[in-house]
Computed example of a mutant assay.
Amino acid sequence: MRVVTGHLPHPLRSDARDNRERILDAARALFATEGLRVPMREVARRAGVGPATLYRRFPTKRELVTEAFTDQLRACRTIVDEGLAHPDPWAGFCLVVEKTCELHARHLGFTEAFMAAYPEAMDFAAARAYSLKSAGELARRAREAGGLRPDFVLDDLILMIMANRGIHALSTAARVAASRRFAALVIQAFRASPEHTRLPPVPRLAPG
């Protein structure tokens, strides 16, 4: 009996890990397409687990959201770090605009979580503070190099993210395509010297 009971915890731990990954996969898929309004019970249903199992793993929706968007939080840091590392500050700034818009367009719920929904979640607060501080430093360099318009303020990036969040499309691919065009328009607006470059194509945003 000692041998049998000694081996019992292993499959239980494996089941728990499997349940946790199914829950996170379901949450990411639902948050990415429907935002954070998705009920916890719908996440459990999509994951194929009971509500009790979901709440055992993630007692609050805040914990589930924070864990589900861990990769996106890392991506935010990577994007601003890549922009700061670029030898041309204006090109680095443009890179941040483009990649930030696309990241938020691919994951609808992430914008809500990052900007407002869970400001008390330490991971989001720290990531937001780091990203904005780094973006501010990059903007300063781009302005001093003559690429960024002199009246730019950091809140303009917040406005950009909020406006980008409002893009509605028939599919994720169309939303990303629309976001790329929007980013191109934003970059032209932020440029110190107007320069009309060719915009990305317009995706279908509403039923024909």
Rank of each mutant, 00 (worst) to 15 (best):
residue 2 R to Q: 09
residue 3 V to C: 06
residue 3 V to R: 14
residue 4 V to W: 08
residue 7 H to G: 00
residue 9 P to Q: 02
residue 9 P to K: 05
residue 9 P to E: 05
residue 11 P to L: 13
residue 12 L to P: 01
residue 13 R to T: 05
residue 15 D to G: 05
residue 15 D to V: 09
residue 17 R to E: 11
residue 25 D to N: 12
residue 25 D to V: 07
residue 26 A to V: 03
residue 28 R to T: 07
residue 33 T to H: 07
residue 34 E to S: 14
residue 38 V to D: 04
residue 39 P to W: 05
residue 40 M to L: 15
residue 42 E to M: 10
residue 50 G to P: 03
residue 54 L to R: 10
residue 58 F to T: 11
residue 59 P to K: 07
residue 63 E to A: 13
residue 64 L to G: 10
residue 70 T to N: 00
residue 71 D to C: 00
residue 72 Q to L: 04
residue 77 R to H: 14
residue 77 R to G: 15
residue 81 D to R: 15
residue 83 G to P: 04
residue 86 H to W: 01
residue 87 P to K: 03
residue 88 D to S: 15
residue 92 G to I: 06
residue 98 E to L: 10
residue 98 E to N: 11
residue 99 K to I: 06
residue 100 T to Y: 02
residue 100 T to R: 11
residue 105 A to T: 01
residue 107 H to W: 05
residue 107 H to S: 08
residue 109 G to A: 05
residue 110 F to L: 07
residue 112 E to V: 11
residue 113 A to R: 04
residue 116 A to K: 09
residue 118 Y to K: 05
residue 120 E to T: 15
residue 120 E to D: 15
residue 120 E to M: 13
residue 124 F to E: 12
residue 124 F to Y: 14
residue 125 A to T: 08
residue 126 A to E: 10
residue 126 A to Y: 02
residue 127 A to L: 00
residue 129 A to D: 04
residue 131 S to W: 05
residue 132 L to N: 05
residue 132 L to A: 09
residue 135 A to K: 11
residue 144 E to H: 04
residue 145 A to V: 02
residue 147 G to T: 10
residue 147 G to I: 09
residue 148 L to K: 04
residue 152 F to N: 07
residue 152 F to K: 03
residue 154 L to M: 10
residue 157 L to F: 14
residue 158 I to T: 11
residue 158 I to G: 10
residue 159 L to D: 11
residue 163 A to K: 12
residue 166 G to W: 02
residue 167 I to T: 05
residue 168 H to Q: 12
residue 172 T to Y: 00
residue 184 A to H: 09
residue 188 Q to E: 12
residue 198 R to G: 07
residue 200 P to W: 02
residue 200 P to V: 12
residue 203 P to W: 06
residue 206 A to D: 08
